[in-house]
Write a protein that binds this DNA or RNA. Structure first.
Lengths: 229, 229
DNA sequence: TTCTGAAAATTGTGATCACAGTTTGCGGTG
DNA sequence: CACCGCAAACTGTGATCACAATTTTCAGAA
């Protein structure tokens, strides 16, 4: 293979997403969906080969994921791995979520309009459907969308980013709930209560509903993690 | 760091810190110290030239800083800049700190020993010295060290990382306090109270002392930011 | 069979180049 | 003097290579 013939056609890429962003999203989803199991090692080249890109954009994406603590880097040999699920990590992540997310819901309440209420009801219906069908990926996506459709209305960029980072880190934990207790373990959530509170701009009601929703979900995660020791 | 000549001699690097980590630390300090003013644009090559390294490790460091929101990236033209100091950002950052940091102090309380108490007193003395001398950089460093010497004892890696990220983002705000009200504006802190509480393993006392310390500091930052509009 | 040790493969890191957008600078035109 | 237009410089992105440090593999000795 001569250096000149290493074609590898380039992309216009002006409007489209950069490759490293696509790679980031791909790895992110793989982590949340549990396609890359916690504890196992990964490498830049193996990820690159799997995604059909050069190691360069993978390197960028991985740096970002490491900074967000969705990937861990062994300080001794500098090798990459997926953080493993420990009770201590879950506990801290839970506590942090339990502070930021209700806060975001409360901040969103004043800015909620009829269109958002409708969208939230549609999204929540999608959550219920996914639950009935036992479609794990669809559930994870829909559940995420419900929460962040609310949080985005809070007009609090910094807190929103914190919440995003926490979901990314807790994604693998959510997966183990399905793995161990099945979809039946998650039939109930507090989305309806949250939407009702938001509809009438009841900030404290929204805060309480989201707090209860998280609290119950996280109890199940804790039980699943402890059962799997 | 040696100038990046085309000779490109390599380092041993086994035990020593990687170049991109040194670059990260250098930019980090420059941001916190306000040597790179908020709002202005930077570029990979200009930073690389300034630090005497190739653009590659700068790219890695910048990715990390962007993920930590210490640098911002313009989505339109993808150019880098230092986030500007807005009241909304300060408010959210403050609220987040006011939750995590007292929590870390409370968690640390049970694990405090005599050696740590001594170290904290030494560090706090350094804070007072820097204040008397009006040495801004020394104050920022010493103040950071006092807080994180406590937080590291909490045995809460996730929350500790959150606190670190928040300090990085709020660093430039701290600087404006000195810029506008001078070192005299910060003569009082609640470090002594915090250390006293920690010494007797009083978690709630430590929580309150740290909360008060942050609260007062952030009031000054808010005033400085508002005055500078 | 089990241990040993050297070769081979794999890893993260850094340098350098190519390329396509964007911004900047500067000349000429009205 | 003000405005336009184009070229040069600069920007982030991606590819490819080189290198040192691991880790893995496997043949040979006990």
């Amino acid at each position: 293979m001569s250096p000149a013939s290493t074609g590898s056609q380039r992309r216009p890429l002006a409007d489209s997403l950069a490759v490293h962003d696509q790679v980031y999203e791909a790895i992110r989803q793989a982590l949340i969906n549990g396609r890359i199991a916690p504890g196992v090692g990964v490498s830049l080249r193996s990820l690159a080969a799997e995604l059909g890109v050069s190691p360069m954009p993978v390197r960028d994406a991985v740096r970002r994921l490491v900074a967000e603590r969705a990937l861990a880097i062994n300080p001794a040999n500098k090798r990459l791995s997926v953080p493993s699920l420990t009770a201590a990590r879950l506990e801290q992540l839970s506590q942090a979520r339990l502070w930021v997310e209700p806060e975001l819901a409360a901040r969103a309440a004043p800015h909620v309009d009829a269109a958002l209420v409708k969208r939230l009801r549609d999204l929540d219906a999608a959550v219920d459907d996914a639950l009935k069908l036992g479609d794990v990926d669809a559930y994870m996506t829909a559940n995420h969308d419900v929460h962040f459709a609310i949080y985005e209305r809070a007009d609090a960029e910094v807190l929103l980013a914190m919440a995003g980072g926490l979901w990314l880190q807790i994604g693998p934990f959510m997966r183990v709930v399905f793995g161990r207790v099945g979809a039946d373990g998650l039939v109930a959530d507090r989305h309806v209560e949250a939407v009702e509170a938001l509809k009438v701009h009841d900030a404290e009601g929204a805060r309480r509903a989201i707090a209860a929703d998280l609290s119950e979900g996280m109890d199940k995660m804790r039980a699943a993690v402890e059962a799997g020791r």
